[in-house]
Computed example of a mutant assay.
Amino acid sequence: MNLWLAIGAVAVLSFTCKAFGPALLGGRALPPRARSVIALTAPALLAGFVVVDVLGHRWSGTDLTLVAGLGVVPLLVLRRAPLPVTLVAAVAVTALLRL
Rank of each mutant, 00 (worst) to 15 (best):
N2P: 14
N2F: 12
W4R: 12
W4Q: 14
W4P: 00
A6S: 10
I7F: 15
I7E: 02
G8S: 06
G8E: 03
A9Y: 07
A9L: 15
V10P: 01
V10Q: 03
L13C: 11
F15P: 00
C17Q: 08
A19D: 00
A19G: 01
A19I: 01
F20N: 04
G21R: 00
P22V: 00
P22N: 02
P22Y: 00
A23W: 08
A23S: 09
G26P: 00
G26Q: 00
G27K: 13
G27T: 13
A29G: 05
L30R: 09
P31A: 14
P31E: 13
R33S: 14
R33V: 14
A34I: 12
R35T: 09
R35Y: 01
S36L: 11
S36T: 10
S36P: 00
V37E: 10
I38R: 00
A39V: 02
A39Y: 03
A42R: 00
A42K: 01
L45Q: 07
L45A: 14
A47I: 14
G48W: 06
F49V: 04
V50E: 06
V50L: 14
V50Y: 06
V51I: 15
D53Q: 11
D53P: 00
V54N: 01
V54S: 03
L55H: 02
L55E: 02
G56P: 02
H57D: 09
H57Q: 10
H57R: 12
H57M: 07
R58F: 07
R58H: 08
R58I: 02
W59H: 04
G61T: 10
G61R: 12
T62N: 07
T62Y: 06
D63K: 07
L64C: 07
L64R: 11
T65M: 09
L66R: 14
V67A: 06
A68P: 06
A68M: 10
G69I: 05
G71L: 05
G71N: 06
V72D: 03
L75N: 05
L75T: 11
V77D: 09
L78H: 08
L78P: 01
R79D: 03
R80K: 15
A81Q: 12
A81D: 01
A81C: 10
A81V: 11
A81W: 11
L83T: 14
V85K: 09
T86Q: 13
L87K: 08
L87G: 12
L87Y: 09
V88F: 15
A89V: 06
A90W: 06
V91K: 07
V93S: 04
V93R: 02
T94Y: 13
A95G: 04
A95Q: 08
A95K: 03
R98H: 06
L99V: 09
L99Q: 06
